[in-house]
């Protein structure tokens, strides 16, 4: 039967689409998790048990809201920014290996593709911040630009160290090379990547572009309804994709240990553990200030990332990995 492989890949593709759409459920998950961290219950009303339908209620509410465009806004920048924010968040999933064969397109330059695509988010921040013609928004946009540019560097450097170990830019090859997870070989590299990734995601303690207590809502102050929801969804999609990349690069992706579970399940477990940790960080720490953030990026993470590359080179030299 030669139609079986085709059908199977269609099913896989659909499952990946479902996974991407399931990001919307993180709205509910995060509110529940935040509630528990704060000794609250979180949403309980819409859908029982435990308000599982909260996401649908939120989406219906947002869809039925008026699409407000401020009179003084740069119309096209303002309208396009949410889409520019959302697209890269989706594109990243193209190269992530969910399992040995579960990958949309295993590009041989996967790592470069990821860093190229994720850099687009700064564009959307700037478009929305500048386009809104609002003082808070533009301050958020400038902060986002400074922040994302300076954290891109340690992020890419720590990814390079992984590439050095695996000897390939393809994410699937990187997973296959991890007979021992790379986090064991380069814990510093993982920490750098984690901090830089949280900063790239614009989440507390690095949510300076939004900075509710200072800038109201930062770059998305003027957005409402579904356009705002696009920013919101892209944040969650980015959270999941960053977690997936962390699991892939440092924790052996779909490779399992001990329990004989399917590779996809292993991948999802690892990914969602990271999603949980990112939320845990968010609901624990206060926010840093812009100058402290840049200090951390340039004066600490960058040297550590370089040190990690040197360390990786040493590993390769001594153990011929």
């Amino acid at each position: 039967m030669d139609w079986w492989p085709l059908l199977w890949s269609i099913i896989k593709a659909l499952l990946i689409v479902v996974f991407v759409l399931a990001n919307a459920f993180l709205i509910w998950v995060e509110r529940k998790i935040a509630g528990r961290f704060q000794r609250r219950l979180g949403p309980m009303r819409v859908g029982r048990p435990h308000g599982w339908a909260q996401t649908f209620a939120d989406l219906i509410k947002l869809l039925s809201k008026e699409d407000v465009v401020p009179g003084t806004a740069e119309k096209w920048l303002f309208l396009l920014a949410p889409i520019v924010a959302f697209l890269p968040a989706l594109l990243v999933y193209m190269v992530i290996p969910f399992g040995p064969t579960w990958v949309v397109n295993d590009l041989n330059i996967g790592v470069i593709f990821i860093s190229a695509v994720t850099s687009f988010s700064v564009l959307s921040f700037f478009m929305s911040g500048w386009g809104s013609n609002n003082k808070y928004s533009v301050m958020g946009a400038f902060r986002a630009a400074a922040q994302l540019m300076s954290y891109e560097v340690p992020l890419v450097l720590s990814m390079i160290a992984v590439v050095m170990l695996a000897g390939s830019l393809s994410l699937n090859d990187i997973v296959k090379a991890q007979s021992i997870p790379f986090v064991v070989l380069q814990p510093l590299g993982f920490l750098t990547f984690f901090i830089a990734a949280v900063a790239e995601l614009n989440r507390t303690p690095f949510d300076l572009a939004e900075a509710e207590s200072e800038l109201v809502a930062g770059y998305n102050t003027e957005y409402s309804g579904m356009r705002w929801a696009f920013f919101f969804l892209s944040e969650y999609a980015n959270t999941v994709s960053a977690s997936a990349i962390m699991a892939t690069l440092f924790f052996g992706g779909w490779r399992g240990f001990l329990l004989p579970l399917p590779p996809v399940v292993w991948f999802l477990i690892k990914t969602y553990i990271f999603v949980f940790i990112i939320m845990w960080v968010r609901w624990t720490l206060p926010r840093v200030r812009i100058d402290q953030l840049l200090n951390l990026g340039w004066k600490l993470l960058l040297p550590v990332a370089l040190l990690n590359i040197a360390w990786t080179g040493l590993l390769g030299l001594v153990f011929k990995i």
């Binding site: 998790i33 509630g35 961290f37 000794r39 609250r40 219950l41 845990w280």
Partner: peptide
């Protein structure tokens, strides 16, 4: 925070 996470919520419905 993780210690509080596993404790019973104090809020009332």
């Amino acid at each position: 925070t993780i210690r509080e996470f596993f404790q019973k919520p104090v809020t009332e419905q």
